[in-house]
Design a protein around this nucleic acid. Structure first.
Length: 451
RNA sequence: GUCCCUGUAGUGUAUCGGCUUAACACACCUGACUUUCUAUCAGGUAAGCCGGGUUCGAUUCCCGGCAGGGAUGCCA
């Protein structure tokens, strides 16, 4: 039997990291086993579902590269893929339950008669979990009175207004769409017995279930939109690479069982499987996520780096088309973890007026004999016959010897004078990139304040 | 309240009933690099929730407690 997984978001908000990670696991599992990944929109709650929200979710999945084999915009043999368009199917399934006496009406709603027996979920991750829905559902906790009250254990599957309820449509669609593996958040583990009861009522063998642990925020509670790293579109804006976000999300609850943590997309696909998923919830760590991104940044080809960084350069007001950009980007690779950090690292290369960092300048100004050092440096560089890294380095060394100091004593003033700050990309390559006249110009201008 | 899942350093994971001084990564701290650093290299701090039991031996298996999370909707 071929593997068919699905991601079934409800378009009532943004694409959340939890949802994205669920989508990723389903996608990876399908890809790993040569199966299909289906995208299904669970918009049965008309009041809360919006087109805009759907678009954000679709955009997020596309950005992450989690393409679906069937679903909105793609089609497929099991459509339509919006639940709001599948009402006839649900009506048909409801009729089956009516015919077999599994349902009854209750104040306009339709309830599914829950069996009075132990139902066991065979979960790939959590193991066997048993519940008796009738017993369990006949008591309900009232959050207002803080007391337990009697309740009807039979589950509502259709509202008085005609709308179908999640548990029912979810099961019907998984049957109709031939879903083989349901990989979803552990928050659904407690719902699964209800789903199994429905599968049984329909006389259908249920799919394989795998409930994955949840991702919590650093304080250990449910991630909310306000938590850093919660929303996928923000990753795009802050300069993350989709491959890195996928990599990091995969690591939250899954491991390759060895020391490898950085996975290229293809590697992730070939290495990922249910066996590597652990059971405990994890807390989101933004720093580690950024580190993963930095690692991916370093592995990018030059042309990919240019493609990804381009928009961020433009946004920062830098000339993305400048001939020196590719070389500058290479210099930035090791200093940046996010694409959005790149402009800061290399901006000085494209500036006509250098922005000086006060503390950096003060550091230089406090050096002994600084005017003399700077002039030795400037004239030394001015006299350099060639302008490559080797030549520049030896020129600076010679200039340093001339004034009786070590090379390092000139490097710092040179860095601050040319780049405006003690931090930034490697100095010598930047000098090469700027060209001799510009370097001399900057040094002279900088020196003038120490006359 | 009831039911379910989970509980290894701050965080994410690994290993394992004895072969371990419990490993790796991020973060943090220190040192080095006589070019800063947000880079690189080297080093360091830091963990088996608690209590019982099984066993020659348990972090690993079982039970209880506690803690965290989830469910308990005519939301999904």
């Amino acid at each position: 039997m071929s593997v068919r997984t699905r991601f079934a978001p409800s378009p009532t908000g943004f694409l959340h990291i939890g949802g994205a990670r669920t989508a990723l696991y389903n996608w990876l599992y399908a890809k790993h086993h040569g199966g299909s990944f289906v995208l299904r929109v669970e918009d049965t709650d008309a009041e809360r579902s919006t087109k805009a929200s759907m678009q954000v979710i679709l955009d997020g999945l596309k950005w992450l590269g989690l393409d679906w084999d069937e679903g909105p915009g793609v089609g497929g043999d099991f459509g339509p893929y919006h639940q709001s368009e599948r009402v006839e199917i649900y009506d048909r399934y409801l009729a089956k339950l009516e015919a077999s006496g599994h349902v009854y009406e209750d104040e306009g709603a339709i309830r599914f008669r829950v069996p009075d027996k132990l139902i066991t979920v065979h979960d790939e991750i959590c193991g066997d979990v048993s519940t008796n829905l009738k017993e369990q559902g006949s008591r309900r906790f009232n959050t207002e009175t803080n007391e337990e009250e009697e309740a009807n254990p039979d589950i509502v599957i259709k509202r008085p207004n005609g709308g179908y309820i999640f548990h029912f449509v979810n099961v019907v669609d998984d049957i109709e769409m031939g879903i083989s593996h349901v990989i979803r958040g552990e928050d659904h583990l407690s719902n699964t017995p209800k789903h199994l009861a429905l599968f049984e009522a329909f006389g259908v063998t249920p799919p394989t279930f795998a409930h994955i642990p949840l991702n919590l925020n650093p304080s250990g509670t449910k991630m909310s939109k306000r938590d850093q790293g919660a929303l996928i579109h923000e990753y795009q804006e802050s300069g993350f690479l989709p491959a890195a976000v996928n990599n990091y999300m995969a690591l939250l609850g899954w491991s390759a069982k060895d020391d490898q943590e950085i996975f290229l997309p293809e590697e992730l696909q070939s290495r990922f499987d249910l066996g590597g998923i652990n059971k405990s919830n994890s807390k989101f760590d933004y720093d580690k996520c950024k580190w993963v991104n930095g690692e991916h940044l370093r592995q990018l080809s030059s042309t990919d780096l240019q493609d990804w960084a381009g928009p961020f350069l433009t946004r920062a007001g830098l000339p993305a088309g400048d001939a020196r950009v590719p070389a500058a980007l290479e210099l930035s690779r090791e200093r940046a973890q996010l694409l959005s950090e790149i402009p800061d690292v290399i901006a000085t290369i494209f500036e006509t007026v250098v922005t000086y960092d006060e503390t950096s300048v003060a550091k230089v100004a406090s050096q002994d004999d600084i005017a003399n050092k700077l002039s030795a440096l400037t004239s030394g560089l001015e006299g350099a016959e060639s302008w490559d890294e080797v030549a520049i380095k030896s020129t600076i060394t010679e200039a340093a010897q001339g004034v009786g100091v070590k090379m390092g004593a000139l490097m710092l003033p040179c860095r601050v004078g040319v780049m405006g700050s003690t931090s930034g990309a490697d100095l010598v390559p930047v000098l090469v990139l700027l060209g001799k006249p510009e370097v001399i110009r900057r040094l002279q201008e900088f020196s003038s304040q120490f006359g």
